[in-house]
Design a protein around this nucleic acid. Structure first.
Lengths: 259, 259
DNA sequence: CGATCTGTTGATGCTCATCAAATCCAGTGG
DNA sequence: CCACTGGATTTGATGAGCATCAACAGATCG
């Protein structure tokens, strides 16, 4: 049940058998959601515990006054929904299922217990929060500065990498149980446009996307198109203090570079 | 020196005199940056300590391969630059000054000391990280789902609220030491377009922006235009468990709402 | 089997980027 | 006091990217 969660956190620390057992003992309360489109947590709520995706996908989203909405994160097995609420009074966004899903619940007391008694696990949980924040920043770049094509390519690179980190891939393919409309809600673009971009990626031989399964046919080209640099996912165990692969350069703002 | 920092965190907890003193004693190492446009931390680095803005503004940003860049956060006095690196191997983005600035540095050991011995302060630091994450999500909505006008209006609402929380406002005005080009780099829009939107906001009597000072002339209308709901800044002390002001409704994706 | 959801394609128009040039400043130096 | 300068802002003209609307073809499902 916990496989993806353990697999994911193992990218940060090697668990001892004891720590593994602690986590397994902690996750007892499990709830199954039969349908997609059901809120796991709603905005304004203060959930009783922290929710953990075991099976299926979910998304963070916000409704806008005009009835439209924006998806701010996709949650796959191994991802936590709301570590936030250990401290915050209430959720500032909602989370709902995108497929049939199984979700575990860990009480805030249990979380605090872990923080007090198992600092290594606590650090791993904290690490996963920081990764989530990195993902948010990269999505910001997707929406603000990348073309629709690069943005979608970048998303696919990220999702493959995250799926692999959670042990959910087969070669270069993974389960992507989303409709084009659901992709468009995260991409900040219309479903029609996402459709056309998908078509282009397919025609160029970069991906195939059938039966809720995305296969990346040409990883190198897709990475190039997306300018994908996986550093923000912080998956490498120990890279030392040297600077690998980073892009340096003088800061330039839009005005300057338009000269 | 620490005024803004203490003021900001005071939105989450009431400090005891002792806690106040602990923080003051912690912040010893201070560095001054004479010029704007200087990196405080560069991507790939592993800084020795956590940096804290005392005076002046900075921004998180990422360079893209084509030489363009994207600003992912504005940092004002009281904001911390890199709590991240307490755990992460390296920075996944850069931070640079946008004005002359004074920055304090707290070693990771000091941070860990505080976490061990002053849990209330630790919680406050953690809280501020969660707020940063909330801001990121809201910026995502700005870029993905709001018009240029609403997005800029939303940014101004946020910045006034944050400035006020750090004790940096006078009535409805605050110091906004950014050029239109620097605004555009965060808004994901061209400087020319930002200029036009600013003009419209001014003409409509919503704001005035002169001498690096932004005054909000009609808060109500601006909030309305921006659909600004300050919940994501988590500034209210105790709102209880009830759901105030939240928007509910059936989930709808772009496809559905286009019917 | 119709009903509903998802994907596909075409036509049309708006938002916004881009390029270029004009204007407005705060210095700076004669 | 004025001319000169470099930066930021403003304005106009043109076009690209993408939204929107509409229609249809396959799937999927009760």
């Amino acid at each position: 049940m916990l496989a993806s969660f353990l697999e994911k956190l193992s990218n940060y620390i090697d668990f001892t058998e004891n720590e593994r057992q602690v986590l397994k003992d902690t996750v007892k309360s499990v709830r199954h959601y039969e349908k997609k489109g059901v809120d796991i947590i709603s905005i304004g709520e203060r959930p009783l515990g922290v929710h953990l995706m075991l099976k299926g996908w979910a998304c963070r989203y916000k409704l806008l006054e005009d009835g439209s909405e924006h998806i701010m994160a996709y949650l796959m097995p191994g991802d936590m929904c709301n570590v936030h609420t250990t401290l915050l009074k209430q959720m500032d966004h909602s989370i709902r299922t995108m497929t049939e899903a199984t979700v575990a619940s860990i009480t805030h007391e249990q979380i605090n217990d872990i923080i007090d008694h198992y600092p290594r696990i606590a650090r791993a949980l904290f690490w996963s929060m920081l990764v989530d924040e990195g993902i948010l920043r990269e999505w910001l770049v997707n929406l603000g500065s990348r073309s629709a094509e690069a943005s979608l390519a970048h998303l696919f690179c990220e999702l493959l990498t995250r799926s692999r980190a959670a042990g959910l891939t087969q070669d270069n393919s993974f389960c992507l149980p989303l409709s084009q409309a659901e992709l468009s809600d995260a991409q900040g673009r219309s479903p029609v446009h996402v459709n056309r971009v998908l078509k282009k990626l397919r025609n160029d031989g970069l991906i195939s996307f059938r039966n809720k399964r995305l296969t990346i046919l040409d990883w190198e080209k897709l990475v190039q198109l997306a300018q994908f640099d996986p550093g923000y996912l912080h998956l490498e165990r120990y890279v030392g203090d040297v600077v690998p692969n980073s892009r340096h350069g003088k800061p330039t703002c839009r005005a300057e570079r338009n000269k």
